[in-house]
Write a protein that binds this DNA or RNA. Structure first.
Length: 225
DNA sequence: CTCCTGATTT
DNA sequence: AAATCAGGAG
């Protein structure tokens, strides 16, 4: 376990991630909308699934179930047949239908904009709730997933028990994101998906190769060009 | 802690 | 073959 990075290191890394994302981030279908329903659906579909898998079915899903009212009335079997390629389809379909029904009944069809309201939805935990707050309501809220753990572990050689580790949430919450929380969190996800690959990380194109402790230990002869 | 559940990566 | 994937519920 290493020492925690200084505030100035964190600030520099944060800026690098945001700048890199603005220039290189993926243009995924659910990132071009801030409609809370569409964002919530995306996050529920993305649970334990890759973004590329969700990208294949997302538009068709939204077209078919345009509003919560539509989804609430659909049969679980029908929903499951549309999300079958993602895995967890029965569980996922049940949660989608129940959440839609809950939203129609308790919130008159609009998505709650508070952590408490969101985590009470079936199939919505702290991660999905926080993602909706960040990506739909532009409200900065700490967000930690497997990607975050992976990136932080390499950058700072910190050891976390996993995505549920309170220390990881506290650490990510200590960043001062201002209004750039979306670019920061999307940037972390995309860096792990495109650059900080698990087996062969592409340090030569990584915006964080300079401060990265893992890179210094594993590619000491790395030239910055 | 276990289970859910399958495509994809390693 | 095993781990992982924008985790959550029981």
């Amino acid at each position: 376990m290493n020492l925690l990075p200084t505030e100035s290191t964190k600030s520099m890394i944060q800026e690098s991630i945001i700048r890199w994302f603005d220039a290189n981030g993926r243009d995924l279908p659910w990132r071009t909308t801030s409609d809370p329903y569409e964002v919530l659906i995306a996050e529920m579909l993305l649970r334990r699934t890759t973004a590329t898998a969700v990208a294949r079915i997302y538009s068709a899903f939204i077209r078919r179930f345009e509003r919560p009212e539509r989804l609430a009335r659909a049969r679980v079997r029908t929903i499951a047949s549309m999300v079958g390629t993602l895995g967890l389809q029965n569980l996922r379909a049940r949660h989608l239908q129940q959440t839609a029904a809950h939203i129609v009944k308790e919130f008159k069809g609009s998505i709650p904009d508070t952590m408490e309201g969101l985590v009470n939805l079936p199939g919505v935990g702290v991660y999905v709730a926080s993602a909706v707050l960040n990506f739909a309501f532009c409200r900065p809220s700490p967000l930690v997933d497997g990607n975050t753990i992976h990136l932080l572990s390499r950058l700072f050689e910190l050891e976390f028990a996993g995505p549920a580790d309170r220390n990881a949430w506290d650490f990510i919450a200590s960043f001062e994101l201002g209004g750039q929380n979306k670019a920061f969190y999307w940037g972390i996800i995309d860096l792990v998906a495109m650059v900080c690959l698990r087996r062969v990380p592409r340090c030569e194109i990584c915006p964080l190769h300079e401060p990265c402790i893992w890179r210094h230990k594993n590619k000491p002869a790395f030239k910055t060009g």
